[in-house]
Design a protein around this nucleic acid. Structure first.
Lengths: 191, 191
DNA sequence: TCCGTTTTTCTAGCGTTGCTAGGATTGCTA
DNA sequence: TAGCAATCCTAGCAACGCTAGAAAAACGGA
């Protein structure tokens, strides 16, 4: 009995430390970018030495970023679910809002962390959930078109807006107009 | 007179070598990714020592990538101009085709090389040309909507499709359907 | 043709990165 | 409390971008 609780405490401490690593990585990334997230600084933040990171994430820095990205997918899915009633405008706004609130994490989810992939059997559930949320809003307005394909295009538009906007490729003045235009274009057709 | 031709030859050799650096960087990036493009390998490829790179590009590796990205913008603009007669479907196809033909360069243009930015006074002409090509095709179908904003959204959709597709985020089977759907959605409205 | 000057190029090295081997330390078990 | 096992840290490797200072080459005027 005594042994059991001690063992439980040890594994609990361990998982807690693993979460602290990811949390520290996320904070540092949002504050100074992913380039500033080095294994040494990360080790310093959790007040342990470098090799400890590798006992939690054998894949090293990439694995830590992947873990952070998965957290991001879960949060994004939750944000989209919360905007389910808002229709196209609501979910599009929620998507862009989250991407702009956590730019570094969004990068980790989509431009870095390349081993994560959708549309496969081993795709994590949290990632599928994001697509499902978008699909739920697109489906009512898809008409006779394939809702899955339409969702992919809708998603691409949102993702493109986010990434081009961050890269200073779009005019900041047109921000709201772009969103309105997306909603208009992807809404139900008049025919 | 003699001095003059010698001087000319010298500056010509110099610019040629600068171009060889960028060319080598592009080749290596497409073959093995930008991570494989190190200053040492680059120096080896042009058969000079490392510091020579910095005499051509004081900004170092980032500057070399930026130079490659600018070449990419020029080529993309030319590809889009060649598809000007094809309307929405033609230019969308040309855009995606180029992005898939030169994936590493496309990354350099849009996800790396962050100091390049559109919608500003100091935006290079080659970058504006890309937007102008898209605008030329969007304008006839914009109707009463702002053609500039519509072009930004259209562009975002294309960029999103390219990046999500490369990240294995979209189903490969739906590739052609997505393109058809983009053309349908951004074409002239029935009203 | 020769020598001093200027430009160009290379060698060598700095600081930092991700990552790991091997020893030291700690905590558990009997 | 002695021995074992899990845990952790020190130290170091190879590779990275980049740069200072020496060596080499090309140039200029006599």
């Amino acid at each position: 009995m005594r042994r059991m609780t001690q063992r439980q405490r040890r594994v609990r401490d361990r998982t807690e430390r693993g979460q602290r690593i990811v949390a520290a990585a996320r904070e540092l990334a949002e504050a100074e970018g992913w380039d500033a997230v080095t294994t040494r600084r990360l080790a310093g933040l959790i007040e342990y030495s470098q090799p400890v990171l590798y006992s939690h994430f054998p894949g090293g820095k990439d694995a830590i970023m992947t873990a952070a990205a998965l957290e991001g997918f879960a949060e994004l899915a939750a944000a989209l679910a919360g905007a389910r009633d808002g229709g196209l405008a609501g979910i599009a706004g929620a998507y862009i809002e989250y991407a702009e609130a956590k730019p570094a994490l969004y990068d980790a989810m989509f431009t870095l962390a390349s081993e994560l992939r959708f549309a496969r059997d081993d795709t994590p559930e949290v990632m599928k959930a994001n697509f499902a949320e978008l699909l739920a809003v697109i489906e009512p307005v898809a008409g006779e078109q394939d809702a899955g394909v339409l969702t992919e295009v809708f998603w691409s538009t949102l993702h493109g807006l986010v990434t081009l906007d961050r890269g200073r490729r779009l005019s900041p003045a047109n921000r709201d107009e772009r969103l309105a235009l997306v909603v208009e274009r992807f809404g139900a057709r008049g025919d």
